[in-house]
Amino acid sequence: MTTKTILEVRDLSASINGVPILKGMDMTINAGEVHAIMGPNGSGKSTFAKVLAGHPAYEVTGGSVLLRGQDLFAMPAEERARAGVFLGFQYPIEVPGVTNSAFLRLAYNTVQGARGRDELDPLEFDDFVQEKLALLEMDPAFLDRSVNEGFSGGEKKRNEILQMAVLEPMLAILDEVDSGLDIDALRIVASGVNRLRTADNAILLVTHYQRLLDHIVPDYVHVMDGGRVLRTGSKDLALELESRGYDWVAKEKAGVAA
């Protein structure tokens, strides 16, 4: 079997308000793989995640990204979502007065519709979403609360993964899904993510901390700095970063270049 390539990033540059952030990113992600991006603050990790998802504040200034062979940048953000790109937000917004279940169902039906599948009515959807709640050990009462309103940091992150479970994306980009989580919540979120892994989808983790990667074990670890990938390795690279910090990666890269 040949591997299915889900995402192909070539020499990608992007800026915000005219300030270049990404300066020549390259990355290939195949089906069934988990990738992790690590790097110091300001290295461009979160920007990369938002550019892939289509945040309007960022301008793509060069390079290309193909999603299953299709030009990702030809699609507005909502089409990318319908095509299977999911971004788990670092800071999910609150939507007062809109219940989680109404929001989830609208998102689900929109994405299903785009995939040519049947939509679910509220009762059918309720059955469907109950299973997903169990996956994340979430109380069904979550469904009746307003989207993210008054949620703790950990609840918001779990809610993001619940949305991922509902939308079944081809590529899930999880931006600092571990930030603000205590150890129990981290375990629950990680086990939820692991159970959503299949041979057909891929996961891109953006994180500061190695500890997440103890729970969700990546196939590849990329170290970013200055808007591009400096080094790619196995999960052992994350352990090395944990003990040695980031500086040596940049120095080594500079040494090689010199």
Partner: peptide
């Protein structure tokens, strides 16, 4: 953007 990212 949050809504768009969920296909809405």
């Amino acid at each position: 953007f949050y809504f768009a990212q969920r296909g809405i």
